[in-house]
């Protein structure tokens, strides 16, 4: 609560809040509404559909290209997340808990990779992947996703790990736990929320990527949803695939919105942990 807010000021900030919410949600409502319009109504210039129809959803799920892309996205983003969080946890644990030369160097390196322009390496990766047989495969995308999310994972995890009272495992040992029990029943539950938060942020990154997806894939074998949406061709050459694109967009946006609704506190904590502390 801020200093000395009067009723008028509260009203002012309340109205401001309503505007912010509208601004944030209008494009989402719009794409949902577009996806529900009948094909014939797509050009009616209305914000809301006159009649809601699920025809575009039926169309995208009939389209083998989209279901393949959805599967690719889930698999590639999931595996990248897992790998980045595991490697990131090792590194963050070492950085927070162990004294060794080069800890700060690793953090600095991670930070500089966070600033690295992906477009600078798509050419070499394209060429290398073709030689190594990784072009248009899952690993071909998992490897760059994992790498580019490692800085995020390391920074977020070290910020969370720093807050853990690590001495509690000693207390658990004194209370009669074995080292393994102390780790599993005391440290893991304490570390889990941070790991989970890092996983959400990493997943969002991998789910969102477009540049690597269109540069390092060419077919349904590994093409992910963002790439598929951008290259949607529609059922016939003459038809604008607007409705299908909208429906596909909604399908891939819904999971993100659910995650955001469920874990908003965590996401905010994760986003700001690296930048604000200290």
């Amino acid at each position: 609560m801020a200093v000395g807010d009067s009723r008028l000021e509260r009203l002012f900030w309340g109205a401001g809040s309503a505007l912010v919410v509208a601004y944030a949600l209008i494009p989402v409502v719009w794409i949902v509404s577009l996806s529900l319009k009948r094909s014939a109504d797509l050009g009616d210039n209305r914000f809301l559909p006159q009649v809601a129809s699920l025809e575009h959803y039926a169309a995208v799920f009939d389209d083998p290209q989209f279901s393949a892309a959805l599967w690719n996205s889930i698999g590639i983003a999931g595996i990248s997340t897992f790998a980045a969080v595991v490697l990131g946890s090792f590194a963050a644990y070492a950085i927070v808990r162990l004294q060794f030369p080069g800890r700060r160097l690793i953090l600095a390196a991670a930070l500089s990779i966070a600033m690295f322009p992906p477009v600078s390496i798509i050419g070499p990766l394209f060429n290398m992947w073709r030689t190594l047989g990784l072009y248009d495969t899952w690993p071909g995308l998992i490897i760059p996703y994992m790498t580019f999310t490692l800085p995020l994972a390391i920074w977020t995890l070290s910020a969370f790990f720093r807050e853990i009272p690590w001495d509690l495992d000693k207390a658990a040992r004194v209370d009669g736990a074995t080292p393994l029990q102390a780790f599993l029943r005391v440290i893991v539950p304490l570390a889990a929320p941070g790991v989970f938060t890092a996983a959400i942020l990493v997943f969002m990154f991998a789910w969102n990527d477009f540049l690597f997806a269109i540069s390092l894939t060419s077919t349904n074998d590994a093409r992910t949803v963002p790439a598929a949406i951008a290259f949607f061709t529609g059922s016939s050459r003459f038809e604008q695939p607007t409705g299908s694109i909208a429906a596909a967009s909604v399908v891939v946006t819904v999971p993100i919105i659910i995650v955001v609704l469920l874990f908003q506190r965590r996401i905010v904590a994760g986003l700001t942990s690296g930048a604000v502390k200290g």
Binding site: V28, F210, I257, V259, V260, I267
Partner: peptide
Amino acid sequence: LVPYGIITVV
């Protein structure tokens, strides 16, 4: 958080 989370392409 919705704009933050949404896919840029979308």
